[in-house]
Amino acid sequence: MADAPRYLGYELSIDPQDTASRDFFRFCREHQLHLQCCGSCSRLRYPPSPGCPFCGSDGYTWIPVDGSGVIHSYTEVHHAVSAPMKPFVPYVVAIVELANQRDDPAAGAAIRIPGNLVTADGNLNIGDLRWGIDSPVRIVFSDVSDEIAIPLWTPLEASRFIS
């Protein structure tokens, strides 16, 4: 048995019965964003769940989704409550909104994926990168194990600057 996967000092554990999480993080490990697509109403959803919040159906397939969006909101954390994050303060958690399915099925609804705002190479210290609400971002992945990568977000202009 391999060591438990660790990320920033956190031990990650995917329950063998949690097939939706297993699949989601495997796609992340392939550096692809896949979301569940409802077999009945065809809407996407996040985070993974066994039933569709829009129609109640339990059938779904995974489909690839463009990993770009805009920062809908965020918080910059100065007080880390858990020990693994204390070396990284201040760090940013962004709520990233995808263009797919905006205002569907109701005004204000959208696919929103929280994650740290990082440099293009995954560093939580984003220094003086310029960003804010409505800034465009793209997804990047931080590899944890053969089975898991963590999805993170980086400002688009910053990624161009670094590459």
Binding site: Y7, L8, Y10, E11, I14, D18, S21, V77, S82, P84
Partner: peptide, 21 residues
């Protein structure tokens, strides 16, 4: 104790857990 599983996989790895955060 920072073992993260279930729904927490989608929030806690980001250092995003307390009500304030």
């Amino acid at each position: 104790i920072p073992v993260i599983s279930g729904q927490d996989l989608y929030s806690r790895p980001f250092g995003w857990s307390s009500p304030a955060q």
